[in-house]
Nucleic acid binder design. Structure first.
Lengths: 135, 135
DNA sequence: AGGTTAGTTAACTGTCAAGTAAAATAACAG
DNA sequence: CTGTTATTTTACTTGACAGTTAACTAACCT
């Protein structure tokens, strides 16, 4: 599993918690201390501290030291990595293929043969099993 | 916690697993049966079945019935909901504020008062505690 | 009916994450 | 030094989740 994969694991895990999402949303409006971040929640400070550690470990936030405060800062990069994954992997490719098909048909300007395309669009799984997986 | 919040919980939880992300990536290229989806992984079929259930419960995929096959289909909406959250909540607002400040300054064409803005940009936490949280 | 293929459910195990209370660390204020 | 504020660490409980094997359902083929 690649380094990027692990980063995505950690980032999506971090974003899967509503408290952490709220913290991220808060930090998007500007840096804040732990107590400021904890204020809106009915949760003990150690709980928040743990959430911040999770956010820090996946690179979503960074923390500096300012007297006895540890202001938290949102790092946009990890967020963008996650967004890029969704964008690049999930803008359904079949639609793009359709558009490509159209384009190619456009170029050739003559009707293609009536046989099905090689792309198995939810069609019959002719060769589903490969026998390579241990049972 | 709102319905949307729960949906985001489930969606990000689903995306936090590398196997499930790979399944989603596979489905982005077109529909597929359970066995087709399972092929690349060193995991038993029930394991894959569980992952698919997780993906289905949060609306990321849907399943129909075609003879003895259950072709899986990627639903773009849940994915977009997740992406929208990242986009709308996390394009750091402080930068936008900066640009707004600039814009306003531009409009007025005269130097603004030198006092600090109300936005606490990592500054001193004057009133961090509100005493409303149980200890 | 009997067998094969596709997929799910049930029951169990191990791991990990969320939350808490209590105590420790760190910096400042008197 | 003593106390106060800010935050973390430790130790623990609880609950969810990944994965397994074994057994089951459902549809097809002959």
């Amino acid at each position: 599993m690649s380094r990027t994969d692990e980063r995505l694991d950690a980032t999506f895990t971090a974003l899967a918690d509503p408290t952490r999402r709220a913290i991220v949303a808060h930090l998007a409006r500007g840096d804040a201390t732990v107590n400021e971040l904890a204020a809106p929640f009915a949760m003990t400070l150690p709980g928040i501290s743990k959430h911040l550690k999770v956010l820090e470990r996946c690179g979503l936030i960074s923390r500096t030291r300012r007297a006895q405060f540890r202001p938290c800062h949102l790092e946009g990069d990890a967020l963008e990595t996650a967004m890029n994954w969704i964008e690049t992997n999930c803008r359904l490719w079949s639609e793009r293929f359709d558009r490509l098909d159209e384009h190619l048909r456009d170029l050739r300007q003559d009707g293609p043969s009536p046989r099905e395309q090689a792309r198995p669009d939810s069609g019959a799984p002719e060769d589903a099993q490969d026998g390579g997986r241990p049972g």
